[in-house]
């Protein structure tokens, strides 16, 4: 139990580091770096715990992205930055790169390498399952991050008359 938890924490810390790396690529303000790390770490932790309990990866990504989206509103108020500045880098580590890779790999094997019909059917299945998982994770990440923003847009968190 303890070792699993430690492993989860280690992986989540790397998710936080990945988020900061992307943040720096997108030139986020210095003040936001620590926040991005925390959000990336938290989102990673939630996602990996959910995956540990065998929850579907699309749902897990959605919940983790919503965590980032909801938390970024009070944080934006706290450090006086618009929420996109740290919500987008924080979800980048959850981008379904591995599924994209598997999709490309299957497409390549399907098109170039194998002429055996029964194997080609397996590749076909791989293309569809990986491709659609990738697409749905992407959509759930976007919705998770942007929905709190869209819902609260009319009454923005920051007030002018203070």
């Amino acid at each position: 139990m303890i070792t699993t938890l430690l492993e989860l924490l280690e992986v989540s810390a790397w998710a936080g580091i990945a988020a900061v790396g992307f943040g720096i690529l997108f030139n986020i303000p210095r003040k936001a770096i620590f926040t991005v790390f925390l959000l990336g770490f938290g989102a990673g932790f939630i996602k990996f715990i959910l995956l540990h309990f065998d929850i579907n990866i699309i749902l897990a990504s959605f919940i983790a992205a919503s965590f980032v989206g909801i938390l970024s509103l009070p944080l934006a108020h706290g450090i006086h930055q618009p929420p996109v500045v740290f919500s987008i880098p924080a979800v980048i580590p959850m981008i379904p790169g591995y599924f994209a890779y598997e999709t490309v790999l299957s497409i390549m094997s399907f098109t170039f390498l194998d002429k055996n019909d029964s194997k080609r059917i397996v590749f076909m299945e791989d293309i569809f399952s990986n491709g659609f998982t990738m697409l749905f994770i992407l959509i759930s990440l976007t919705i998770g991050v942007s929905l709190p923003l869209l819902l609260l847009r009319k009454h923005t968190v920051k007030r002018t008359d203070n």
């Binding site: 992986v11 790397w14 998710a15 580091i17 990945a18 790396g21 992307f22 720096i24």
Partner: peptide, 18 residues
């Protein structure tokens, strides 16, 4: 240079995640 190093660390982070 900072960007190079930071992004390389995120590459390593991704690898750990997978």
């Amino acid at each position: 240079y900072i960007v190079l190093i930071a992004v390389s660390f995120s590459g390593a982070g991704f690898c750990k995640i997978f």
